[in-house]
Design a binder for these strands. Structure first.
Lengths: 210, 210
DNA sequence: TGTACATCAGTGAACGCGCGTTCACTGATGTAC
DNA sequence: TGTACATCAGTGAACGCGCGTTCACTGATGTAC
């Protein structure tokens, strides 16, 4: 029973079989990635935070990259859910639904810049992570569906894909510029909601006259 | 005279006073950042590549971060120059000038993804690098001026700034999605030039009727 | 042109550090009878 | 309900590694006289 790490309130059980270590490690790594950046975490430090020996993580993860992938995977789940919820809060086919998805995306980046960077910078050496790629495509799918609804076209229409990609590029760039502090001067005082609506309207245009 | 490192063809001089080490270190680090990512380089490895002892770099740079900053600084110079050249190749106030700047930006990211990531991810711990920030703002200035010319407004007009920032966000996001491989399915076969023209027109609109 | 000397860019050995990963182990837990 | 046992999630010590940085040093270079 270490005094250094905060005692786990939920699963005290026995200090030995700790029962929740995998989830607690992911959370510890999430915090470390947030604090020190995607490359600034160490397995040892994560174990320390979870109040566990430095060998313990290897009972749950094959190696260091696998832990990072687990964090990214969990983050993509949360991102997708919040995008879906944002869309669901507005009428199907509305511009607001599209803008809300974008806002959810930007909010995620702002709330967890380190994890956001991790998710999108994980390309190197992690090409063989089909589940991550698939989860990313699911997120994009949310945008595609909203764009399709707005345009009154099927989701696999090339125009829909193109417009959805434009929206994604914009929101993605805005997110990165924001968390990297490059947007301070220009975009510090803007109203995000109006901004995203303006962009959505610009990319998707007015609804088909009908 | 090490056989492992390629002998410097330009400045053989004496193997001792090597004369060009600073530049050669920056180049070595550039390559390492390209190969292993912004955090994957080490001072030791860079020295090895330059055919020099691991202590030598400290005659030219205070510490590790300073080397990275030097690489970023040099990269920002090149980026600005290529954006300016791209703009200069088209009529002042044309949509093509704007699109060409965007293309230069995307091309830079594609040609040097590691360095591109370095330049924009250097925020953490490097806040006190006013020269880097200034060079970044110079790059943005190229976009702002082109947008101002297109819209027929002064560069410090709020609308110009807003539209220039939109363009930047889009191109920045597109660049990142591209180098992170997220755009494969959607944007693999697009014509970049048409794409950037479409975006530029969408954001800046048709020229003021005059 | 020759000599004395300050400068300065290199060397190479050494330091302490934290890390990723492995290993033999231990003791709590759940299950079969 | 009680007991024997397989399982499995932990321990903690140890390994080798490469790194960032420092240090006293050396020898080439440029300059003043």
């Amino acid at each position: 029973m270490s005094d250094e790490a905060p005692a786990p309130a939920v699963t005290p059980k026995s200090a030995y079989h700790h029962g929740d270590l995998r989830a607690q490690l992911i959370e510890a790594v999430r915090e470390l990635v947030e604090t020190h950046g995607p490359d600034g975490f160490s397995v040892a430090e994560a174990a320390r935070r979870a109040g566990v020996s430095s060998a313990a993580p290897y009972k749950h993860f094959k190696d260091r990259p696998e832990i990072l992938r687990a964090v990214a995977s969990e983050a993509l789940d949360r991102l997708r859910i919040s995008m879906e919820q944002a869309a669901a809060a507005h009428p199907v086919g509305s511009l607001e639904a599209v803008a809300a998805i974008g806002l959810a995306y930007v909010d995620f980046a702002r709330a967890e810049p380190g994890v956001f960077r991790l998710v999108f910078g994980l390309t190197e050496g992690h090409e063989n992570a089909p589940d991550l790629q698939q989860k990313g495509e699911c997120c994009f799918g949310v945008v595609v569906r909203a764009a399709a609804n707005r345009l009154g076209l099927p989701p696999d229409d090339p125009l829909v894909m193109r417009r959805a990609y434009m929206l994604w590029s914009f929101v993605h760039g805005h997110s990165f510029l924001h968390i990297d502090g490059k947007a301070r001067v220009v975009a510090e005082n803007i109203d995000e909601w109006l901004f995203l609506n303006e962009i959505s309207r610009g990319v998707l245009g007015t609804p088909p006259a009908a």
